[in-house]
Design a protein around this nucleic acid. Structure first.
Lengths: 150, 150
DNA sequence: CAAAAAAGATAGGTAACTTATATAAAATCA
DNA sequence: TGATTTTATATAAGTTACCTATCTTTTTTG
């Protein structure tokens, strides 16, 4: 009878609980700007993936297309994104982040990084090492979520 | 010159990026019920921490007290929570999850666990072991977030 | 005990969504 | 090819989840 559970037995319930906690932490941290979660998520997507069509954004955020149209109209008015014609399809519109929009994304990421640096700073070196060792696997999980292999 | 970075050097930017991805994954996964994120978060809080006052809920969710009052009124109408008098303070109201409310929380957690089990099932045993080894440290981080030591 | 503070409810307004529909361009197909 | 269907976006109108401001009741404080 081992005193601790097998270290290579990943308990999915524990993983779920931890990730739920981080989700709530991340959602509530950045209420700095007057931007909704969906809006911030769109800015984040544009920052990470470059210009995208309205329809692609709507699919990714799981809101309706009119919702994205309205959001982009407001973001454009506020100078955070711009609409570009899609050279390959004259029906379509590409939405691109402006410098100001990118600055917001970066500032928010910096906030989160600062908070996480605080938290990890309070851990032991061994704990930090354990997290560092798990990062590639966690990254592959979110990659698998994004691009499922069949 | 090591071929890989020091394994015990935790890159906060990478950690931030991974957790951002999981946040977005978790937010968007469970649009099953017709409940807002804040509502779901309240149900989750009540499931994890037991009955709470309206004011405590409002502080925890970072919305205003009237917003919680209205949300609880609807949740009560739908049978997911109930209002109880606080024996220690006749101004106050305790909000408690009903069985139906708890069932929703559990169903949503089961959904997330199933999804994560899918994802981790596609990892190598070594990757799963790395995540398992990091879980206590991650749990301690969210604990530190919740209850900062000064 | 009087005044201030705290807990919750109510009223009214705003903004982010929704569904339904319209328009224009592209893709399909007979 | 021209007619039809599909796709990409926009617009309109309604709903809802929030907000601020204010009220009542109870507790705390001086």
């Amino acid at each position: 009878m081992p005193p601790t559970p097998q270290p290579d037995e990943l308990n999915v319930a524990d993983l779920t609980a931890v990730l739920e906690d981080f989700t709530r932490m991340f959602i509530r941290l950045p209420a700095v700007q007057r931007l909704s979660f969906t809006t911030l998520s769109v800015l984040h997507t544009l920052a990470g993936r470059g210009p995208k069509r309205l329809t692609e954004l709507a699919a990714g955020e799981q809101v309706t297309q009119p919702a994205i149209t309205q959001m982009v109209t407001k973001l454009e008015r506020d100078g955070l994104v711009e609409r570009l014609p899609d050279p390959s399809d004259r029906r379509a519109v590409l939405v691109r982040l402006t410098e100001a929009g990118a600055a917001i994304v970066h500032a928010r990421r910096a906030d989160r990084m600062a908070h996480l640096a605080d938290l990890t700073g309070a851990l032991t070196p061994a704990e930090r090492a354990a997290i560092a060792a798990a990062l590639p696997a966690l990254a592959r999980m979110s990659e698998l979520h994004e691009h499922p292999r069949r």
